[in-house]
């Protein structure tokens, strides 16, 4: 069960990551002072881009690997009183709508080149580009500002997304540098990654705790609701338990009405999680429709499609099942 790189090739790649030119990745949000993403008070770094498309996702801005234009209608001053973006855009991506049509600005995403000309003239920040290319060092510097809070609370940095391991070399760099500076590291993952990728392995070596999503045990339903099959995820969970036996895992299950909110499904998920010795806890997270407005802001067609918020009494019932399963 070695977590060492397997071949000399990977060793070389590893070396390049350690010594080579700094990489950047797109970050869509850095949340300081979070008390919900791993132990203690934490800084959560959201990496942009995710291979999954979970229907209930409340961070749709994390889907794509490219920067995106965000347009908040209700922050917009409007074409009549402002309209600076219309003049700024050289590609005709922003158009004036017919009178009486909301803010009066229409975004034509298919012609937008993300040049940022509109965002720099937008006084109200109604138009912004979400996804900032950042160096790992800059991110770790920001996370380091709250060192006092981590020390007092047992907190640290949490890498989230999107899927952070979709950019394994970058994730590895952040996690390694964070650990070098004495920060506790948490990796929040969907489980959809390449377990054999040397950078993934390096990431895991520099991770103190994994928050691992298990959404469903049924492959068909899983594909239907998240766009990917779950066999790789389950396999990765098992391998994580085998190949990194000392790395603690907290299993997390978003409970989505109509998808996995039955006693039976939750019990099956709980049994799977309980079968991995390094899974030290299993949390249920209720589905919340707090991201609805975001979909329209990014020009996405549906909003947490068909999902409903989960009511607490049911959540408590299901949590009890998990508790009983885990003993």
């Amino acid at each position: 069960m070695s977590d060492e790189p397997r071949t000399s090739t990977t060793r070389e790649i590893n070396g390049a990551a350690l010594a080579g030119r700094p990489e950047t990745a797109l970050i869509f949000h850095i949340q300081k002072g979070s008390m919900q993403d791993g132990p203690g008070i934490r800084t959560v770094v959201f990496l942009k881009g995710c291979p999954l498309r979970c229907r209930w996702c409340f961070n749709p801005e994390g889907f794509r690997f490219q920067a995106e234009l965000r347009f908040c209608k209700n922050m917009c001053i409007g074409a009549a009183d402002c309209g600076r973006c219309l003049d700024a855009c050289e590609y005709g991506a922003l158009q004036k709508a017919a009178p009486g049509f909301g803010s009066g600005i229409i975004v034509q995403r298919q012609v937008c080149r993300l040049c940022g000309a509109c965002t720099s003239v937008c006084p109200s920040q109604a138009i912004s580009i979400v996804g900032e290319a950042m160096h790992a060092d800059a991110i770790v510097d920001i996370a380091g500002q709250d060192r006092d809070f981590y020390a007092a609370s047992g907190g640290g940095i949490t890498l989230s997304g999107g899927e952070p391991l979709a950019r394994p070399a970058f994730a590895a760099e952040i996690l390694r540098k964070s650990q070098e500076r004495g920060l506790h590291t948490v990796l929040a993952t969907s489980g959809w990654y390449d377990m054999d990728n040397p950078y993934v392995r390096e990431s895991l070596r520099h991770t103190d705790l994994v928050l691992f999503d298990i959404k469903h045990v049924d492959g068909v339903l899983h594909r239907q609701f998240t766009s990917v099959d779950n066999s790789r995820i389950i396999e990765n969970l098992r391998r994580l338990g085998r190949e990194f036996p000392d790395l603690p895992i907290i299993a997390r299950t978003p409970v989505v009405p109509g998808f996995n909110d039955t006693h039976k499904v939750i019990e099956e998920i709980a049994l799977l999680a309980a079968s991995i010795p390094s899974v030290c806890d299993h949390e249920l997270l209720p589905c919340e429709l707090v991201g609805e407005a975001k979909y329209a802001q990014f020009g996405l067609p549906h909003t947490q499609a068909g999902s409903r918020s989960l009511e607490f009494p049911l959540l408590e019932e299901l949590s009890e099942i998990v508790g009983n399963t885990r003993g």
Partner: peptide, 14 residues
């Protein structure tokens, strides 16, 4: 911040 995993972008008080 108030929810696990939630990225709170400006202006989201629905």
């Amino acid at each position: 911040p108030h929810l696990p995993g939630y990225a709170s972008l400006p202006n989201d008080l629905t």
